[in-house]
Design a protein around this nucleic acid. Structure first.
Length: 257
DNA sequence: ATGACGCGTCATACGCGA
């Protein structure tokens, strides 16, 4: 079973490259972040015609996440517990064939001296509490998406340039580590222990050409899901060509049973 | 320190991303 996560940076702007890629790679489950569209305008028919059912948590202009699946699924929630006032569309959870799929678009948090940063820390605290509870269910859980966290120095080209950034902040990385210490496995790092791997390159300053990237898109697996992990990698070729997203897809392959 | 690039918007400048 192939599951992919992709921050597409706008479904309207990405449709022309996204659809051929889905056709070619035929993931069983695909989760998107930054769809930047309201639910009623999401191009559902395009993906339905490719055989996908979908859950959408959209928002005008910003954020927005979606889950596409070839197999039927049950929608669990489009709200991360812990803050009823939170209006930002950053969370979507479904259960599909015994697997719990939790798609997140974690807040960026920059600049650090603003409410955006406290929102990020609060959001991570809510996520940690929720995922801690999920682990007790002893299920196959796939927690994936754009985490906006650079876990370690190896996960960016120039660590010193990120030292004051919300993506590499000590508290942010500590909060991320809580998930790993709780029992979630970082699938990409597990399959590629010492490689420099990035999933996002800024549009500016020739970042892609200079390979000045960051590894901030992650797939985290509960122990039962990790038992089935076969492979995990990123699609570098999707950063090339006309009008790419600034992120690339990250996928996992899980063995059956 | 600044601005660059791309996306979307009550568009023709600005907020936001990372």
């Amino acid at each position: 079973m192939k599951i992919v996560s992709f921050n597409i940076n706008g479904i309207r702007a990405r449709l022309e490259t996204l659809v051929p890629w889905i056709k070619k790679n035929t993931p069983d489950i695909a989760v998107f972040q930054e769809i930047k569209i309201q639910n009623e305008f999401f191009p559902e028919k395009v993906f339905a015609d490719l055989g996908y059912k979908m859950a959408i948590n959209g928002q005008k202009s910003f954020n927005g996440v979606a889950i596409l699946s070839r197999l039927p699924f049950d929608l669990v929630s489009s709200k991360l517990p812990g803050d009823e006032q939170d209006e930002q569309a950053r969370f979507l959870e479904v259960v599909c064939g015994g697997k719990r799929i939790v798609c997140i678009y974690l807040p960026n948090g920059n600049p650090k001296n603003t409410e955006k940063f406290s929102y990020k820390l609060n959001w991570m605290d809510r996520l940690n509490r929720y995922c801690h509870d999920l682990l007790e269910l002893e299920e196959e859980i796939i927690l994936l998406g754009d985490f906006n966290v650079i876990p370690q120095a190896i996960d960016c080209k120039f660590p010193e340039l990120w030292k004051d950034d919300a993506l590499y902040d000590d508290d942010v990385r500590s909060n991320f580590n809580y998930l790993l210490n709780s029992g979630f496995l970082d699938a990409l790092r597990n399959c590629n222990p010492s490689k420099e791997i990035y999933t996002q390159w800024d549009y500016r300053n020739n970042a892609w050409e200079a390979n000045n990237g960051v590894r901030i898109d992650h797939v985290l697996l509960s122990p039962l899901a990790a038992d089935k992990l076969n492979d995990c990698w990123v699609e570098y070729n999707m950063r090339e060509g006309d009008k790419p997203s600034d992120h690339v897809p990250i996928w996992i392959k899980l063995d059956k049973n």
